[in-house]
Design a protein around this nucleic acid. Structure first.
Lengths: 225, 225
DNA sequence: CGATCAATTGAGCCGTCTCAATTTGGGTGG
DNA sequence: CCACCCAAATTGAGACGGCTCAATTGATCG
């Protein structure tokens, strides 16, 4: 089950056992602190065991762009494998725990276990797709569609973790949502108010209660056309 | 040299020789036609030998989002490795030629040549970063900054291929640039006119002549702050 | 040499941002 | 336990950037 969370490979049970070696080490990250910073040496990628993290780029002028909110079972750090140097910050939005997947160990293990590298390729490809989806959202959706799509995405991922798709707590601020979606915090706040007014959802601070999933879907544009 | 273009691994010469096997097959793609479509089975990734391609997502409602313009030496198709099904279209912007890197062959070869998978990981990580950069552009830059950054990026990549960083031909239409940057074609056109008026560059149809690289840099926001 | 598509340019509108004022909630120390 | 303080969120008014719609010019190609 640990393996399931740390490195969801979807492989045979005995193979999974061999992986336990790979992911022995764990790290606790208190809310607000960083798992890694831009410029740090990349020696591992990380699988989230519990909690929520954000990853963000920061350019020379200090401008920040959040590129992802990561939930348990998801992997982060794969953007640092170009020069084995992290190009982003990973910061915990709540007290979190990750397991460490050392690249070196993985290379060693995959010598005797080719499926491992294929699985890792799949995870990296997934990350590429995740980012492309965000590009699509930023490039061609309007603000209300972006927020709707964002909420649906969160709902879906939380649901896959066994939580309710209808009620959940946002671990990020309005400002962080806005940054991620290319909007201002005020716009995000206004949209929440409007969605609430229109009966799509209830929101009290960071507690979301989705009332009309289908309406959100058709609003997001994900829903055919 | 073929290898250099097709699969720029940066590895020892004798190792490179072994790779030639991997990339024997080539495909010509006439301008306007597709290397692969959304839904196609992914059996290979492709290295561009000559020409230019674009990759674009298409959602259920037919909405299109261009996620990249690819030049010689660059790899495409890595977003299709999640379920071995392509999730995007790859279309040639001019007559192009790519070499085929079969995943199966690569797995086989990397059994005896571990550096190969590490290199491939590096290429996938690069693609993740490319996409994150685009997210940053879409999420936090204004139209003029996006276009400036786009031109600088193109200039830089063409320069690395041995072409002039100052004069080049855009292989894509205003509409395609606009789609990529989350702008309308009119906005792109107006920006070109304005940049030209302000002496940053000359533009005649798709021929670009950059006159003031430094001004473009400071405009793009890439240039410290 | 028309026909067609790409690009330019203008006018007006709309969505989102900016700036500013309140309100709300959570945490801390008296 | 309450009062206070600070950060987060809400809401409003006005400005502005980029979009839409439309007309025109300029390439490219049978």
């Amino acid at each position: 089950m640990l393996s399931e969370l740390c490195f969801p490979l979807g492989m045979a049970r005995n193979d999974v056992a061999r992986l336990d070696e790979l992911i022995r080490e764990r790290i606790r990250i208190p809310k607000g602190s960083a798992l890694f910073h831009l410029g740090d040496k990349t020696e591992a990628v990380y699988g989230i065991r519990s909690g929520t993290l954000k990853t963000q780029l920061e350019d020379a002028s200090g401008q920040v762009q959040i590129t992802g909110f990561l939930l348990p079972g998801e992997i982060l750090g794969m953007d640092g494998l170009v020069n084995n140097t992290h190009v982003s910050h990973a910061i915990a939005l709540e007290d979190s725990e990750v397991c460490v997947i050392r690249i070196e160990d993985m290379d060693q293990l995959s010598l005797h276990f080719p499926a491992l590298q294929q699985q890792f390729r799949r995870l990296m490809s997934k990350e590429i797709n995740r980012s492309h989806q965000l590009v699509m959202s930023l490039g061609s959706l309007r603000s209300e569609q972006r927020l709707a799509a964002f909420l649906l995405n969160l709902s879906h991922r939380l649901s896959a973790l066994g939580y309710s798709p209808y009620e959940f707590v946002l671990r990020m601020s309005r400002e962080e949502i806005g940054n991620y979606l290319g909007l201002t915090l005020e716009t995000v706040s206004r949209l929440f108010s409007r969605f609430s007014r229109e009966g799509l959802l209830q929101i009290r601070q960071r507690e979301v209660h989705i009332l009309d999933m289908q309406a959100l879907r058709s609003l997001s544009g994900t829903d055919c056309g």
